[in-house]
Design a protein around this nucleic acid. Structure first.
Ligand SMILES: [Mn+2]
Ligand SMILES: [Mn+2]
Ligand SMILES: [Zn+2]
Ligand SMILES: [Zn+2]
Lengths: 148, 148
DNA sequence: TCTAATTTTGTATTCATTACAAGTTTATCA
DNA sequence: TGATAAACTTGTAATGAATACAAAATTAGA
C-alpha cells in the first residue's frame, strides 16, 4: 500500500500545522477560511466565504475574512483572481499554476490547464516575471449544450 | 509611393467617421476620449482620462467618461484591463491582441507580445472562447537597472 | 497567574462605479 | 425654417467593495 500523500491530501489532513509551517498562527477562523477554499474551488468572493461560514461561526466578521485573505495572499498561500471588475475572487495557489475561464452565461469560473512556458516571448526576457495569469471569457460546455 | 494607410493611421486621420462606422454617434466628448486612448497607450483609469481632458473640456462630467468607455467596450472598440483589483483600466482594442506586464515597482503597465494560439490546450476545445487575457507581474527593465 | 502581543470584531470611512433625473444638443419632419 | 422627439451630457445621490481604526477577546510568554 502507498502511504505517500500528495499536496492536497497532506493539507486536508492537517491544515493547522500547514499554516504554522507558513508562518501563520492557526486561529479557528483562519483554519475554517483556508479549509473552505480547499473544499470549494469555485473562486469565491469575500461575501460568498462569509455567508458560507457565518452559520458555523456566528461571531465571524467580514473584516476577518478580508484580513485573513490578505494575509494568505501576502504569504502566497492564496491567489487573487482579478477576472471580474467588481469583486475580487480567491483561489488556493497551486504550484503548477492554471488558467481561468469565465462563462458569460452561467457566470461560473472554471480552471483550465495552461502551458505557461509557451506564452513567454523574447521581449519578456528583459523583464523579471514573478507571476503570470491567463484568463479566457466565453461559453462553457454546459451552457453550449443547453443552447443547442 | 504607398498611399495605403494602416489601422492606426486611418483612425488617427478621422476618428469621427471611424466611430460612425462602428455605430457610435461622434460627439465631441466621445471623439476626445477615443483620441486620448489612441495617443496614450498607458492603460489609463477613468480618473486619469478625466483629469487629462477636464482642462480642455471644462464641462466634462466623470459620468460621461464612464458612459463613453462602457459604450466603447460594448461596441468592442476598447478593452477593459482588469490587472488591478482597485480601478479598471482601459486600452484601445487591437486586432492582433497583446498581453500586459504590471511592474510592482513603478506601477506602469506595459504591452507585451503574446502568442495566444500557443496557450490553448485540448481541454479548452470543449469551451467556446470569445476572448483571452494574459497578464504578467514583476519588475520592468527600467526598474531592474535602477535597482542594480 | 500576570502581562504583552496578537487576533478578532464592529463601526466608520473611503472611493470606484452606477442610478437617475434634469438639462443640453442633435436629428427628423412638416 | 421651426417644432418635436430622440440621443447625449451633466450633476447629484446611491450603492457596495474594501480599508481604517479602535475596542474587545484571545493567545503566548514569563
Ligand atoms: Mn482556479
Ligand atoms: Mn495594452
Ligand atoms: Zn456556463
Ligand atoms: Zn518598473
Amino acid at each position: 500500500m502507498n502511504t505517500k500523500l500528495d499536496w492536497g491530501e497532506m493539507m486536508d489532513l492537517n491544515i493547522p500545522s500547514f499554516l504554522r509551517n507558513q508562518g501563520i498562527k492557526a486561529s479557528y477562523q483562519r483554519i475554517r477560511i483556508y479549509e473552505y477554499l480547499m473544499n470549494n474551488r469555485t473562486h469565491p468572493t469575500v461575501a460568498e466565504i462569509y455567508n458560507a461560514l457565518i452559520t458555523d461561526i456566528p461571531s465571524l466578521s467580514k473584516t476577518t475574512v478580508y484580513n485573513t485573505l490578505n494575509l494568505f495572499v501576502e504569504k502566497e498561500l492564496v491567489e487573487e483572481v482579478t477576472i471580474e471588475g467588481s469583486e475580487m475572487r480567491y483561489d488556493i495557489k497551486d504550484p503548477e499554476g492554471h488558467g481561468h475561464f469565465k462563462c458569460t452565461q452561467c457566470h461560473r469560473i472554471f480552471d483550465v490547464p495552461v502551458q505557461i512556458e509557451k506564452i513567454f516571448t523574447d521581449e519578456l526576457s528583459e523583464f523579471h516575471v514573478q507571476a503570470q495569469f491567463v484568463h479566457f471569457v466565453g461559453i462553457c460546455p454546459d451552457c453550449l449544450k443547453k443552447n443547442s
